[in-house]
Design a protein around this nucleic acid. Structure first.
Lengths: 352, 352
DNA sequence: GTAACAATTTGAAGCGCTTCATGAATGTCG
DNA sequence: CGACATTCATGAAGCGCTTCAAATTGTTAC
């Protein structure tokens, strides 16, 4: 690399020894004023800071963490940034990580297993202090294959079967249960679960929860329309399918695996104008989607504590990094909350 | 740090010299099989790879980039991950960066200027190959203050006034113009712009564009309702305010600064049931919000090419990193596109 | 004036890697 | 068969930092 082309501008980054030279001190002193200012006289501290400012010195963190053997960044590998649930997790994780004086860097797997493991590899190679993994809802192959390394790793929204990692999850069954029981409490008896595919763990567990709630009530039934995804589009399809089955439809309560599904269903019902929500059919969604609360018929929902999950997971990770973590890996289970709105309560619901 | 507490497990990461020892080769050979396999015999390559696998060796990237003086990661500092526009940018940037054999790490500024500059600092200290910055819509102070460093930096969705950095922006005026002209083309003459605050550059420019379109038509007028933000809530407020001004309202076309605003307006109009959209009032939003296309009345919108912006910005950055960039900084201006849907076309619009 | 001690400062060692001059081994050709 | 390439492998130097034992300076007590 010729001197002229180096780094585009040709001006090389000044190093710590440049700073030391300019300030007329030893290199160790520069390091000290940066890392343990209390070990340095006020006078020399000022001289060093002046030199740093004059040269525009920026500490080389690669060298720092190589020499110190510790890093101050934490990596977060996230299944899908397009999903606001994961953005909430990121936000929570960042807050906690920051409190511990570290930084959070995010890598998006974009619903692609290969990218996910590549992202894990990137963080490991960078020797980050630790990694938070909010993985794809798929078998755990990739993460287990990762056991070669010993970077601390905490899972978010995924439970390590073999207790290899700590993690934070939310009780999906409970969420499904809450949603269904709410509808049942409103006196509805012929329920329907909309969501899918059931091969997704989260969906399956929500469905199970709903089944349990229905089983508790003697004359209640739970039907199922399995979808190919959780978007508005899928909700609309499901609603049309439902109407095609029998019109008027034979149900009076719907538990949807996502708010978007619920919205899709409501929209179709609105169009048909035959079904009143919640008069004829009470509907509960899932996720506390930002839009859902603002939509035409505010959707009752089950709220996932995304930020809290991020915070807790980061807390667990920081413990592992500090070495203060318990020997045994633990999985914290957070409880979802029901947020009843108009799509189930009707006019009884007051916007606050 | 005692041996027992080190790294939690106590098992230290193996180094390249461990691999070299096990494979019975020199350390330089290990480096070569990793970085330039063609310089190494097939036989030794295999021996080395076997040793790597056996030890579970993971290359220390901090040491690598320190020694090599180059990094293989690119940083993206993003104003707000909660906004899907920025997620699109991230997705585009990642695709391009990956094509160049590098990795993309994301840091979220979360609409906080202090975090933004901290994030920039983190990436600089990490000596990433380059940084993409999708900044907050605020004065350029922080980024200029950053001039001390010489990490390549490309802006996304922001134009460097002093041409200090290359960048990719979208022509917001054009977007506003397209939206307004579309409504005018439908024969509407009494238009209203909803959005705000106008101190946001993007909003102001969209408004200007709309004004220009209206100025082109002799008898057309453009009214303004300034909002405090671009959410559904603000749209509802604006609509109520409008109705309060005069009922029936004196306008027949609305250009909104976001799809969410448009949805809010439509929802209020729906409730009142007095105004038909688009019969009485044609509405165009902005952003091609995922949600907007699926809503009850699919919202006509102006689409921002987020992914393309990310791709292009990453392309520019890679050029700067490679040193093949033109001397002068350039700002690429991308054009937004109009996507007419039912909220303006009515039944003439067919879902595809 | 000096010994004893604390407070600062110093600078060499080394973190794990890439690089590259050097050497060894093998092949080629007149 | 010797001279010369060519191909591989070697290992020391050094990237910019942290650390820490040792040197230096300042302070207090006697």
């Amino acid at each position: 690399m010729s001197d002229a082309t180096r780094k585009g501008t040709g001006r090389a980054q000044p190093s710590m020894s440049d700073v030391a030279k300019l300030a007329g001190v030893a290199i160790g002193t520069v390091s000290n004023t940066l890392n343990s200012p209390e070990k340095v006289t006020e006078a020399t501290r000022r001289r060093v800071m002046a030199a740093i400012a004059e040269l525009g010195f920026v500490r080389n963190d690669a060298a720092r963490s190589l020499a110190a053997g510790t890093s101050t960044t934490v990596g977060l590998v996230v299944a899908d940034l397009g999903n606001s649930f994961f953005v909430d997790i990121a936000r929570g994780a960042e807050a906690t990580v920051r409190q511990h004086g570290m930084n959070l860097l995010i890598a998006n797997s974009d619903v692609d297993l290969a990218k996910q493991s590549n992202n894990l590899a990137v963080f490991e190679q960078a020797r980050v202090a630790g990694v938070l993994l909010a993985p794809l809802d798929t078998p755990f192959v990739e993460v287990s294959a990762r056991l070669t390394s010993n970077t601390p790793l905490v899972l978010v929204n995924y439970e390590s079967r073999r207790k290899l990692y700590s993690g934070v999850v939310v009780d999906e069954r409970r969420g499904g249960f809450l949603a269904a029981r709410h509808v049942l409490d409103l006196g509805r008896r012929r329920l329907l679960f909309v969501g899918g595919p059931l091969s997704l763990r989260a969906v399956a567990e929500r469905y199970e929860g709903a089944q349990r709630a229905v089983a508790d009530v003697a004359d209640a039934t739970l039907d199922l329309v399995e979808t190919h995804g959780q978007n508005i589009r899928h909700g609309k399809q499901a609603a049309r399918e439902l109407v095609a089955r029998s019109n008027p439809i034979a149900i009076d309560g719907i538990v949807a695996a996502s708010d978007l599904l619920a919205i899709g269903v409501i929209q179709v019902f609105d169009e048909l104008a035959d079904f009143d929500v919640p008069g004829d059919v009470a509907i509960v969604g899932y996720d506390n989607n930002h839009f859902a609360s603002e939509s035409n018929v505010p959707v009752s929902t089950v709220s996932q504590p995304g930020e809290e999950m991020g915070r807790l997971a980061a807390e667990l990770l920081c413990e592992e990094i500090a070495g203060t973590a318990a020997r045994d890996k633990q999985t914290v289970v957070l409880q979802p909350h029901l947020l009843p709105r108009r799509s189930s309560l009707g006019d009884a619901w007051r916007r606050d």
